[in-house]
Structure formats: structure tokens, C-alpha cells
Amino acid sequence: MAVARFWRENASRYNLIGTKCGVCGRVYFPPRSVCPTCHRKSIGKMEPFKLKGEGEVLTYSIVHEAPSQLEMQKPYVIAIVQMDEGVRITGQIIDVELDELKVGMKVRTTLRKVSDDGAAGVIHYGYKFMPV
């Protein structure tokens, strides 16, 4: 039963809420409670920070051997995206033609079904990227 495990991350999964260190100003996603640069000084000073959702593809792969959750979508595209705020996020690129994929392409986030707990289970929604 993964209901609560996904539910408690909804703010980040739906709206890209990360954290910003109140000491050095660095932005992190997913949220962190300690800044890896400022360590102790940052404790209690990590503020929620919403990413705009736009970025650029650093690298990607076209996945042919899919986990059971993504069987219906294969081959699908997974990428690491450098967000405009500097952090990097791993996620699917959807609504893209495979021959249009390239390192450096601009993408933005949208909300899609990411997985579910079976036909009778809860549906987990989250961010995916689409070409701008």
C-alpha cells in the first residue's frame, strides 16, 4: 500500500516544490532539510521554493525494457533536465517525436499519470516534461 508514500510528496510531485537555502541561496529539488554546502548553518533556514518548471535536456534515453507501470508507453523517453533555477530533475519527456530528441532541447513540466496501484488502486500523478 503505497498511498501515503506518494501522497506526502504531492506538493513536490505536482508543483515542483523544492527548497532554497536561506544562507547561501542555493536551490534544491527534491526538498532537503540541510544544505550540503552550508551544513549546520542552514538548519531551520531551508525554505520551500517553487521551480518554474522550465529547463533544458542534459541527457536522455529511449527506454525499451519498461517496468510494468510503463509497459503501455514503451518505448518511452526518460531524461535528466537542467532546470532554469540550476537544479536537475529526472523525468519522462512525453508528446515528443523520437527523432526530434536532442541534448539541449527546451522542455517544460506538465502533470500526468505516473503510476497506479493496479486497476482498483490509487493513481499517482506527477510531473513529466514536454517540448516547449
Partner: peptide
């Protein structure tokens, strides 16, 4: 699991992304 795998990154795919970046 929470921020890579559950978003569709398989283990081979993560390495494939390393490969593509190394090639790039």
C-alpha cells in the same frame, strides 16, 4: 526510488543517460 525510479528511470536507462552524456 522516490525521485528517479518511480518517474520511469530504469537502472539501464540511468546508465544509458550517462553514456549519451559521455558521448556528447
Amino acid at each position: 526510488q522516490q525521485w528517479e525510479t518511480s518517474f520511469g528511470a530504469t537502472f539501464p536507462a540511468l546508465h544509458a543517460m550517462i553514456a549519451r552524456r559521455h558521448m556528447h
